[in-house]
């Protein structure tokens, strides 16, 4: 499973990378905003996208929308991990087709639970 981690803070990317490794996902790549992430997604065979929302350049919500609008990427599972906690934002992300939403600060168990849930759903819908 190949995962792309997108966050403008390199410390947060490392935290998520380590947590994913702990969950058995060793094949991860990193990008620092949507503008860098989108070409990587289009060029690579990623199976999962974990992205922050508030980033300079292209924000996570716009990356999500771009992914859903891209024929090749439209079904890519996307998990938002963000400090944005307002109701209207969560609704916006849901409407844009997010697969999971984790609010920062989060703990390892929450991230694990959300990722597992996303993959359970995908399996179930196959």
């Amino acid at each position: 499973m190949k995962i792309l981690i997108v966050d403008d803070f390199s410390t947060m990317r490392r935290i998520i990378k380590n947590l994913l490794r702990d969950l058995g996902f060793n094949n991860t790549s990193e990008a620092d905003d949507g503008n860098t992430a989108l070409p990587m997604l289009q060029a690579g065979d990623f199976d999962f996208l974990v992205t922050d929302w508030n980033m300079p350049g292209m924000e996570g919500i716009d990356l999500l929308k771009a992914v859903r609008a891209d024929e090749k990427l439209a079904n890519l599972p996307v998990l938002l991990v963000t400090a944005e906690a307002k109701k209207e934002q969560i609704v916006e992300a849901a409407q844009a087709g997010v697969n999971g939403y984790v609010v920062k600060p989060f703990n390892a168990a929450t991230l694990k639970e959300k990722i597992e849930k996303i993959f359970e759903r995908i399996e179930a819908s196959k």
């Binding site: 966050d7 803070f9 410390t11 947060m12 490392r14 935290i15 380590n18 947590l19 702990d22 508030n54 400090a83 920062k104 600060p105 989060f106 703990n107 390892a108």
Partner: peptide
Amino acid sequence: LNDILMAQDFQDITGQ
């Protein structure tokens, strides 16, 4: 070690 790892999320939160 995991606690130490997670504690580093302060950098993102305070940075924002």
